[in-house]
Computed example of a mutant assay.
Amino acid sequence: MFQIIRNGSELWLTTNRGLLKYNRGNGQDSIYKFTSDDGLQANIFNANSGIKSSTGHIYIGCNNGINRFYPYDFTRRENSAKLNIVFPDFKLFNRSVPVDGSLLTHTIDCQRAIRLRGRKISFSLDFIALNFSSPLRTVYRYRLENFDDKWITTGQDESAGMQHVSYTNLPPNKYRFVVSASTGSEQFGEEAVVEITVPPPWWMTRAMVVVYGVLFVVSAVGGGLLLRWRVGRCTASRSPRLPARINSTCWRPRSASLPRWPTRYERLSR
């Protein structure tokens, strides 16, 4: 950093990689970067070569000359840098989904929602920001909610032209693909969203889960009642016959089964 030029609540910083504007408006810190793509003569500035005139213009010297600009011109450019994002194509298993009413009744950019069926879904999505002033400075950040844990940010070298993202083997769930763009600053524009729904197969739906639970409870209760009935039946069928069996087969009087020997008195009397 070579110099700091104050303009109200804004700070303009000259560096060897462009011109930075630091703003603390509305309680939020923001940093914007401007380079030769925005009209500056060079990205490297001379030390202590900047000044703010009484008319509000800022003059900054560099190797190629002097840069003169009005700070609010860049503010209007920042406001116009809220880029719109369009989705030219949606592919399912590497094939573009036609607009035939089966999955898409309109283009994916107009419909912004699609419902897919299958256990493991693989799709890809194309998107691009409409930045006609400085397309090489476009930076994207995106993520697939309920799948990506954090934002994925592209570099300026990766952001030129059409963007292409792919996701494979997605389980059934409700997803939201969220993407926003910026012109090289830390503040991103409005988010563009595509809702992607992958419903579960019929045997994994909530209704079937309830049915499985009811069947389990009925089976458990029915099994318990059946077991209790069988135990009671066996007990009732064996109890009345047990004494009779013992009396008739198991127990006999000793006198009925063994020969009786005469007593001593009977032997002497003979």
Rank of each mutant, 00 (worst) to 15 (best):
I4S: 03
R6H: 15
L11N: 13
W12Q: 02
L13N: 00
L13G: 02
T14Y: 11
T14K: 06
T14N: 02
L19A: 06
L20W: 05
N23G: 00
Q28H: 14
S30E: 15
Y32C: 09
Y32L: 08
K33S: 13
F34A: 04
F34E: 01
F34V: 05
T35C: 04
G39A: 01
Q41C: 02
A42C: 04
F45N: 07
S49H: 07
T55R: 05
I58R: 00
G61T: 03
N63H: 03
G65N: 04
I66P: 03
I66Y: 10
N67T: 02
R68I: 12
P71L: 05
Y72C: 04
T75Q: 14
R76L: 15
N79C: 08
N79S: 05
N79V: 12
S80E: 15
K82F: 13
K82E: 15
L83A: 12
V86G: 11
V86M: 11
P88F: 10
K91Y: 12
K91W: 05
F93G: 01
R95A: 01
V97L: 05
D100F: 00
S102Y: 01
T105V: 11
T107C: 06
I108T: 09
Q111D: 08
R112I: 07
I114F: 06
R115D: 04
S122A: 09
S124H: 03
I128T: 07
A129C: 15
S133C: 09
S134W: 02
L136C: 11
R137Y: 05
R137I: 06
V139F: 01
V139W: 01
Y140Q: 10
R141Q: 15
Y142G: 14
F147I: 10
D148S: 15
K150C: 08
I152E: 06
T153K: 15
Q156G: 14
V165T: 08
R176C: 14
V178W: 09
S180W: 06
A181Y: 04
G184N: 03
E186R: 09
E186G: 15
F188G: 09
F188Q: 09
E190F: 09
A192K: 15
V193N: 07
V198W: 04
P199H: 08
P200E: 05
W202Q: 10
W202E: 08
M204N: 06
T205L: 09
V209Y: 07
V209A: 14
V211R: 02
V211Q: 02
V217R: 00
V218D: 00
G222F: 10
G222H: 08
G223F: 06
L227T: 11
L227G: 12
L227C: 07
R228S: 13
W229Q: 08
R230I: 10
V231I: 07
C234Y: 09
S237E: 08
S239E: 12
P240T: 11
N247Y: 11
S248V: 05
C250V: 15
P253C: 09
P253Y: 12
S255T: 12
S257A: 14
P259N: 09
R260S: 14
P262Y: 04
E266Y: 05
E266A: 10
R267P: 02
L268S: 02
R270S: 12
